[in-house]
Nucleic acid binder design. Structure first.
Lengths: 248, 248
DNA sequence: TCGAATTTGTGCGTATGTATC
DNA sequence: GGATACATACGCACAAATTCG
């Protein structure tokens, strides 16, 4: 299977190249479907399909009646994920260092642990956990979605069952666990990328074609996981940064 | 802008749901365009567009004459990126722990530093660097692509200009730099996801709709960057894992 | 083994609705 | 309000690969 240069591919690659190398700058209006069809000697249908593909790749946005434009990408923000402190939750700290006002909504529910979560927390499927769904905003815009799980076998009756209520609210997992004598020794994070679910795209205000990065995070106390969370953010706005110390 | 339930969306979401919840298991043949069109009371064109979208999401693969199947995903491999050792390069070490035979091809060139690389290495644009492109295989299959950059102002005349030649070949950046008295103190990694370039998709054997994860990595000696690299891998096969020690 | 039926890939044309300018 | 431009949907034609009797 060699080249396989279809008309659509040629058009897509030509436009993509111009977008990537800056010939077509962000915000610039692309030729209309009719114009593309004429210039490239293809049908309007083919021009439409090519533009659709560029939209799917997140390179182009379209507005009915207006036209297709090269998508203006927000500047990529580097999210330092390498400094977990004993008394500062990462999101608010990060946003304040960027000079933005953090705001967090949350909703906690007692639920039986689903299989994937049970495995991450090393508990039995169906064991009771506290699930807390967060919507994190900065300057009013939704920036992160997060769902956290804590085994109730750890927190129940200690007065800290609800992560965001009581004396230790807003201080993060490490401080809360510390308050009941559990010493968090390590945080493990694993990021990966996937297409957004419909409700995630809506909440995060994602342009079509933009993926999300999901960071699977687990707090460990020795060899015992005490909390795990899925953090979801726009893959085109944020990239995590990890600093790794050397071992000899 | 409320629901906006188009026929195509309904079809896509219906099939996607069945794929995600396992009703349509990996490898299973989907209904043909004609069958979907009949069942959902839509045109064949609409059925085709819906299937195309699922392909773009990496959920479905198609073969001319054969049909559409739910894509069989390779098991996700967790890539431990938190243990840099002074005398072991990460890729070969990782693959051997998985019981796979690593093989590395490389090609080194002296080139002027492009702007993005110059900024990462804190040198002037156009300053000479050694660029080494790697193709990393495990059991014969291409698993990672990587491009590394080192300032020649650091390595020139010390006998280690070529990363993969001479006495210290195959030992990694840290050992080589150590040999000329440069003590690498820290490695910084920042992963993000993007659609693959055409040649990357071909080399990595990516199914349509699969993205790549690119890890930007920099070796630091104190506050001086001594090497930087872009590591590219299939986002559906690999996810990096970072262990983060706590600071008080 | 071969050929017909099936199924997808690509490309074209058209119609209707809606938003923009 | 009219022209323009995109969004959705439908139907059709032919090529290429596969499947199956």
């Amino acid at each position: 299977m060699p080249e396989d240069v279809t008309k659509t591919r040629r058009l897509v690659e030509d436009l993509r190249q111009q977008i990537i190398d800056g010939t077509l700058a962000p915000g610039v209006l692309l030729p209309t479907r009719a114009e593309l069809a004429a210039h490239y000697q293809v049908s309007e249908t083919t021009a439409r399909n090519a533009l659709k593909q560029l939209i799917n790749e997140g390179l182009v946005v379209s507005r009915t009646g207006s036209g297709h434009r090269v998508r203006e990408r927000p500047p990529m923000v580097r999210l330092a994920r390498d400094r977990y402190h004993r008394n500062k939750p990462p999101f608010a700290t990060e946003m304040r260092t960027q000079g933005r006002a953090p705001q967090v909504e949350w909703d906690s529910q007692r639920v039986p642990a689903p299989p994937a979560i049970a495995e991450r927390l090393r508990i039995d499927v169906g064991e009771q956990v506290m699930r807390t769904a967060y919507v994190m905003r900065a300057d009013g815009e939704v920036e992160q979605l997060s769902t956290s799980y804590e085994p109730l076998s750890i927190t129940l009756g200690k007065g800290i069952e609800l992560p965001e209520a009581g004396q230790f609210r807003g201080l993060g997992v490490i401080a809360r666990m510390g308050a009941i004598g559990i010493h968090v020794s390590e945080v493990v994070e694993s990021p990966y990328a996937r297409p957004p679910l419909a409700w995630e795209a809506e909440r995060l205000g994602l342009a079509p074609g933009v993926w999300v990065m999901e960071i699977e995070r687990t707090h460990w106390a020795g060899d015992r996981p005490v909390e795990t969370a899925d953090i979801v953010l726009a893959a085109d706005r944020y990239r995590p940064v990890y600093r790794i110390a050397l071992t000899d």
